[in-house]
Design a protein around this nucleic acid. Structure first.
Length: 461
DNA sequence: TCTGGGGTCCTAGGACCC
DNA sequence: TCTGGGGTCCTAGGACCC
């Protein structure tokens, strides 16, 4: 059996985990030094991977300085046409879950307190937590703002076995950030991730290698990474209910059912044989910097109410284009493939893309492609719910052919874009917008900016 | 007033090239 | 002048993850 430990993070006295859920628990040694028993000792070499996952991260951060909300169901997110981003455990008792529609959540738990997300604070807390991880090992792979893999192979001599490292991390994060987290400890990243889920909330689960299959095989296939609602339903229809069922299905059969790549992946995961290593990286997509470059950048927005007005749609597309292209310029990348997304009132969603001959980071150039794609749809009074703009095939701008840069300059837009970027940096995104975004709001006070965007000067050189 | 926004990866068909 | 087989690129859609 694998072991779940839920223990106080403070003081020398540690208690056994509750056994009400049928899980066994080992006592944990008090004080510094390796834990008791050969099992824990052995873990130092055989289970070097930690998956640390904050408990109800957004909700915990949002309420950590609100004692009045400690015993109240709390939902972060919601709003008009919104979904739940995070719910505390009290709200979850009512069935509230992440990604659930706000309306449904409110129906399930009408007395919940709904808070708007504060991404600046989430990012600040996340940065601190990741820094704490890096004090343990440089091999920290951030997966998102609130979770990371740690390879502690090289840290056990200094800090003790993985379990002890896990408990130390939990105590530190609780002390410094006022939030709790759960840790999965295993030989591989995929098993560690499954283990942390079993540890929630506020616990640790260690899965020794010899107990891996007994841990994995009873789980529902839906627990496996890469198996969502659709694939789970399909596998269930085929009679594959548990991970063990998948494990004992011939690879070829599996691949016929779910495709070559996913079939291979599920087969590996079901035996815990994935050999993926932890790669040090921060979550660049979450504004933490570093990491591998993004492969695409995009933005999308759901309208407050559906619209069939081409002008309204295109104005939104321009706003999204400006946002995306601005982010690309900040990141120093350019991209070749422009994709638009249109979701209709009935939620059917289509995409259209066009690949340009050269990569670009110019707002106008991307927008030309966007309008071309949208108009090619030939929509007549179709009610549009959401539009999106994405640029793919990103490469560092300095690797883009020199001709592009010259050609762009001839149009003068490059200079205008950079002027916009500078102004945005100084005055915020609301200060500088393409003219058509200003019209509706009567913006005499931004006349000069508007003029400079609408009629860029030809550069001297 | 059901169903957000940021991404990644895979599949499949057709074009095109060798 | 009867046909194979890769490889790559492009496009559209879909599933999934956080």
């Amino acid at each position: 059996m694998w072991h779940r430990r839920r223990v106080p993070r403070h003081g020398a006295l540690r208690q056994r985990a509750d056994s009400a859920d049928g899980m066994s628990a080992l006592p944990i040694g008090a004080g510094p030094g390796p834990g008791p028993g050969a099992r824990t000792g052995a873990a130092s070499t055989t289970t070097p991977i930690l998956h640390v996952d904050m408990d109800a991260f957004y909700a915990s951060v949002a309420t950590r300085e609100r004692p009045d909300l400690q015993d109240v169901p709390v939902i972060v997110g919601g709003g008009h046409r919104g979904v739940v981003l995070s719910a505390n455990y009290l709200a979850r008792q009512y069935g509230v879950r992440s990604a659930m529609t706000a309306t449904r959540a409110r129906r399930l738990c009408p007395h919940a307190v709904v808070l708007p997300p504060d991404y600046d604070t989430f990012t600040t807390v996340s940065t601190s937590v990741m820094a704490t991880f890096r004090q343990v090992t440089p091999l920290v792979e951030a997966l998102s703002l609130d979770e990371a893999f740690l390879d502690v192979r090289g840290s056990t001599r200094r800090l003790g076995p993985p379990l002890q490292i896990a408990e130390q991390l939990r105590a530190t994060i609780h002390d410094e950030q006022g939030i709790t987290c759960s840790v999965g400890v295993a030989a591989s990243v995929s098993v560690a991730k499954l283990a942390s889920r079993r540890a929630k909330p506020d616990g640790v689960v260690v899965v020794p290698p010899e107990e891996m299959t007994s841990f994995l095989h009873p789980l529902d296939v839906g627990e496996l990474y890469g198996v969502g609602e659709k694939t789970q339903a399909m596998l269930h229809r085929l009679g594959l209910i548990t991970v063990g069922d998948v494990a004992h299905t011939p690879l070829r059969t599996l691949q016929r059912a779910v495709g070559e790549a996913l079939g291979r992946q599920l087969h590996d995961l079901s035996w815990g044989t994935d050999r993926r290593e932890v790669v040090a990286r921060t979550a660049s997509a979450f504004g933490l910097g570093g990491g591998e470059p993004d492969k695409s950048m995009g933005a999308q927005e759901t309208f407050g109410r559906d619209t069939d007005d081409r002008a309204v749609v295109l104005r939104e597309m321009l706003r999204l284009t400006a946002k995306v292209a601005g982010r690309m310029r900040t990141a120093g990348v350019a991209g070749r493939t422009v994709t638009i997304t249109v979701r209709f009132a009935d939620f059917t969603t289509i995409t259209r893309s066009r690949t340009l001959s050269e990569a670009t980071d110019g707002t106008q150039e991307v927008y030309r492609a966007v309008t071309g794609l949208y108009d090619a749809l030939g929509l007549q009074r179709a009610r549009v719910r959401l539009v999106g703009v994405r640029v793919e095939g990103l490469v560092p701008r300095d690797r883009v052919h020199q001709q592009l840069v010259l050609g762009e300059r001839e149009h003068g837009w490059s200079e205008a874009d950079r002027a916009v970027d500078r102004a945005t940096r100084r005055f915020g995104a609301a200060a500088v917008r393409p003219a058509s975004l200003i019209d509706q709001e009567g913006a005499g006070r931004v006349r000069s900016v508007r003029a400079s965007i609408a009629a860029p000067r030809r550069p001297d050189r």
